[in-house]
């Protein structure tokens, strides 16, 4: 469904040229659960951004359902992100000035839906991560684990086909991290959602179907 073909990414600044990724071949199929591992600076986040259609490769191709992604304009890409993809970040990235419910509604704002439908979808999504009782709280009133669950609710509220998680447990203790991984596993198993997760934690990586290891921008398995 989502495929990287011989993808490379070079960052150019005035003086420096950094090869962030090189020769990456990767296929994300429906129902996949992938882990991306590697030391910091190995290109994990860049890979995730490419998969998330947030960035364009400098070499190779990104294909979604067999179609070249680079052909799309910004509006189409945004709609694709909105409908096909969900994001979870290491530091949660919730909007501090919005309540939990409003945060979860954000992806739905960019779809032609009525307020009532939006609200219902957001509440259902919060129910799926077990936070129904906290919908009117603000992010600062929640623990780290709860915040990350809000972030997951926000990522899945639009029923994406692929969930991209950038070190979702990185800022959490292992107990809470465990809970988050359990949620991701459940989403993958029960709803067939593809999950691509960047992680440092070998234990969590081993629970996935496949591990992609990166070193200096190259795939090493």
């Amino acid at each position: 469904m989502l495929e990287l073909k011989n993808v490379g990414k070079v960052y150019r600044t005035e003086r420096l040229e950094t090869q962030a990724l090189e020769g990456i071949n990767l296929k994300v199929r429906p129902g996949d659960f992938l882990a991306v591992m590697g030391p910091s600076g190995s290109g994990k986040s860049t890979l995730l951004h490419l998969l998330g259609l947030l960035d364009q490769p400098t070499q190779g191709m990104v294909e979604l359902d067999g179609r070249q992604v680079m052909d799309h304009d910004d509006v189409t890409l945004s709609h694709l992100r909105n409908e096909m993809l969900g994001f979870v970040f290491q530091s949660f990235h919730l909007v501090a000035d919005l309540s939990v419910l409003d945060n979860v509604e954000i992806p739905l704002l960019y779809r032609p839906l009525s307020n009532r439908v939006r609200r219902d979808l957001a509440l259902r999504s919060l129910g799926r991560v077990g936070l129904s009782s906290r919908v009117h709280h603000y992010p600062s009133q929640l623990s780290g684990g709860q915040q990350q669950r809000v972030a997951i609710a926000r990522a899945i509220v639009g029923s994406p086909r692929i969930l991209l998680a950038d070190e979702p447990t990185g800022n959490l203790d292992s107990q809470t991290g465990e809970e988050i991984i359990a949620i991701l596993e459940e989403l993958n198993r029960k709803e067939g959602m593809s999950v691509v997760m960047v992680t440092h934690d070998q234990r969590f990586a081993e629970r996935t179907h496949r591990i992609i290891r990166l070193f200096d921008g190259r795939q090493i398995n």
Binding site: L54, S78, E83, F87, H93, Y110, R154
Partner: peptide
């Protein structure tokens, strides 16, 4: 910038 980045990743177009 951050908030804008998140909204973009969640599917907001430049126009949004």
């Amino acid at each position: 910038t951050h908030e804008i980045g998140i909204r973009r990743s969640l599917g907001a177009t430049a126009g949004d």
